[in-house]
Write a protein that binds this DNA or RNA. Structure first.
Lengths: 182, 182
DNA sequence: TGATGCATGTAATCCGTTACATGATTCA
DNA sequence: TGAATCATGTAACGGATTACATGCATCA
């Protein structure tokens, strides 16, 4: 599957129309954030190009004291291209975890630094879990999209497993959690 | 942290010396495979360059009917550079999962294709788990490196959680597993 | 005899990031 | 007053992939 910025934008736009700026936000804050990054430097050119190719339509909204907001919407042709990308079986997961790389090479790192890295990872995992929990509440009230629910559930399971393992390996972390919960 | 091919090669070489070809194999088959890819097109130039910079030493082993095997070993300077890379706190995880992207956009995909993708993912997860289990046995007999053990345990937890979630969501998969276990 | 594994390398190309350029608005 | 948010874009650069180039050995 071609998992690049183009496909990603088409995917997000298949839910609702958006500007480049809004896409970036959605990618950073939404479910997408867990599997990809995207910067303005890649998003804007991709949108311009796909608009020229007829995969997107463009509507300009005038703003006061700001550049026009360019709202893009996916076309039937765009949906076809997206569907074609999705029709290729997904490649296997890559975790791209600098944390695990660091752990693997722990004989190279001072104990202090290792503890710092572990604490940071612990915090990251906790925050991600909190974000998902919050989203699950919000989603409940609005439309219950099957895809989002599945991905949120998957993320929750995996993150919780990682957190549990981390706490089992480093009992020190449990206390942090308990004191924080009080 | 600078997680690129250079750092990766230094990391692998910090365990044992190896040729470019062997590094590729190790990266594909070892623990590394879960968090990064690396092709010959990036490995060979990186090794040549790092050798020129004094981070690696080079020993040529003559072979019959094949190019000389160039065995690289990390130097103290190389270890210093690696340590410096590791001294930067790791960035947060990215899962880079085409599977989850596909699930998120499931309203775009036929049920047949979705089932195929799910089955493939199920197989991938099972195979990865089996690989880790096998490695845990092997490692037991040789040196018990703390880093490898941690990463294997982490991988096991996370993969098992993903597998459980998948089977809970798609009861059909459980049968596959049971019949395979008999 | 044809695929797979061993073994190294280069060059074109792609894809994306980072930094730069611009500038108003709102909140602390 | 200074930071963050909104809003779009370009250009230089970096890093890695893909395809190409070469060729023997082994196994099915």
């Amino acid at each position: 599957m071609a998992m690049n910025v183009r496909t990603l934008c088409l995917g997000v736009l298949s839910f609702k129309e958006a500007s480049g700026y809004e896409l970036k936000k959605e990618i950073e804050e939404g479910m997408y954030s867990h599997f990809i990054d995207a910067s303005f430097g890649s998003i804007y050119p991709a949108l311009t190009q796909m608009n020229a190719e007829g995969l997107l339509t463009l509507r300009s909204e005038e703003q006061s004291g700001r550049p026009d907001k360019k709202v893009y919407a996916i076309t039937d042709q765009g949906r076809a291209v997206l569907a074609k990308s999705l029709a290729v079986l997904p490649a296997s997961n890559k975790f791209k975890s600098e944390f695990l790389f660091e752990m693997l090479l722990q004989h190279f790192v001072s104990k202090e630094h290792l503890d710092l890295a572990i604490d940071k990872h612990h915090t990251d995992l906790s925050e991600d879990l909190a974000k998902i929990a919050q989203k699950q509440l919000h989603q409940d009230k609005s439309k219950c999209d099957a895809g989002s629910l599945f991905v949120m559930g998957y993320g929750e399971s995996v993150l919780r497993a990682a957190l549990n393992y981390l706490e089992a390996q480093c009992p020190r972390l449990k206390k942090v959690k308990l004191t924080a919960a009080e």
